[in-house]
Computed example of a mutant assay.
Amino acid sequence: MKIVIAPDKFKNSLSSLEFCNIVEKQILSQNPEATIVKLPLADGGDGTIDIVNFYLNGETKEKTVSNPFFKAIKATYLYAKKSKTAFIEMAEASGVKLLSANALDCKNATTFGTGELILDAINNGAKNIILGIGGSATNDCGIGMATALGYRFLDKENKSVNPIGAKLSTIKTIDLSQVHPKLFEVDFQIACDVTNPLYGKNGAAYVYAEQKGATKEDIKLLDKGLEDFSKIISSVFHVNAQSVSGAGAAGGMGIAAKVFLKGNLESGIKLIKQLSDFDNQITDADWIITGEGKLDKQTLSGKTIQGILDASAPKNIKVAAFCGTIDINKKNLNSMGITYAAEVIKEAKNLEDAMMNAKLHLKNMTKKFVNQMQ
């Protein structure tokens, strides 16, 4: 019997690698003849870098770069020399996680540090760069990143504009003459699970800027900046920014990655599945065991389990889901393609027990599953 173990993490409780090891050990203790394939997954959010490294087997590169307010910090990314592939999370240099809650101020924040990480990867020989754009503290439409790569954003007096969100409306033209010569020798894939347009009520500023420290007045300023800058993008790159799904991701980094990096916006789970050679690895599997912290309607919107179901259905592979909690009834689970489901919260005494002892509960859930499978 071939069993593929392919979970996402249980946030603040269990990593996807820990999940794989616990389930594998329990299955083999009950069924030593089973063939186990471990394919830990992620959807592009926190912790994705560990999963990427599981497949890339790269080294951690450290670089002193600018934080969202141009202060020097040390940030890291992954680089696999053999495949010349780098994985960069913009949150490492330009993320909310770098700032205290009362320090957030996205109108004055920059993605310059993310550009510095990209530049370092290129200088180290990267030919493929995967860029994760979640968790940003910025709303500069990627002009900080682009500035670090040699783009120059000029005002009406032909002077360089400080690359922050508050200055977007002052940009009148873009100078491409000093862009890094090797930039377009690199293939960029952008992990983006957001479909928001660049500006407007569903755009980057109105939907996300408040949680990045913006006031109502800031939001109006930023939204106008994004709209104004979209016209510059149109005139220089001949791209209608507002029509690009995901353009508003990470404060406009979605459209920035497309026009400045010539990158392709793809779902995080799709990229991880490509790295893991998922579709080929699951061939002839009898079961796929997956899981995540909470299985609910959002699972259908590009999360890890949906990515698994998309791959398992054509191959008629049964899917078991071990989750922290499940907010979908059994009938709907079956219609989604999930044959077996179990949740930690039903094993535990309470939520605290579920979080603190997730490993033990997962082991017991696996034991019950194997017993009914035999």
Rank of each mutant, 00 (worst) to 15 (best):
P314I: 11
D228M: 13
A191V: 00
K270P: 00
N108V: 06
G125A: 12
T195G: 07
A341P: 02
L300T: 14
K107S: 01
S312I: 04
K363M: 10
L295R: 07
K2N: 13
G251I: 10
I255S: 01
F369Q: 06
I129H: 11
K331V: 03
S267M: 12
A191K: 03
K84I: 11
A209H: 02
G135S: 04
T290R: 01
V4A: 13
T195W: 01
T110V: 07
A166L: 14
L226H: 14
K303A: 06
G132M: 07
G144A: 10
E217T: 15
I255L: 06
Q30K: 11
A103F: 13
K159V: 11
V52M: 15
Q298E: 05
P7H: 04
M336F: 15
T215G: 13
D310C: 11
S301Y: 15
N123E: 07
T215L: 12
N280A: 12
K61T: 08
V186G: 03
A126V: 09
I190M: 03
T64L: 10
S230K: 00
V186F: 03
K212N: 07
W287A: 00
G307M: 06
P163M: 12
N21S: 07
S16Y: 10
S83M: 11
K330V: 08
K61I: 09
T304I: 09
D277V: 00
A146G: 02
T111Y: 03
D50N: 10
E59P: 01
V207I: 15
K294D: 05
V161L: 09
N329R: 02
I326F: 12
N108D: 06
T35I: 15
A34G: 09
I129R: 05
G132C: 00
Q281D: 08
A348W: 01
Y151K: 04
K81R: 15
S235I: 02
H238G: 11
P40L: 10
D296Y: 07
S100W: 00
T114W: 02
M1E: 06
P181R: 04
L14D: 01
T110G: 09
K349H: 12
N102I: 08
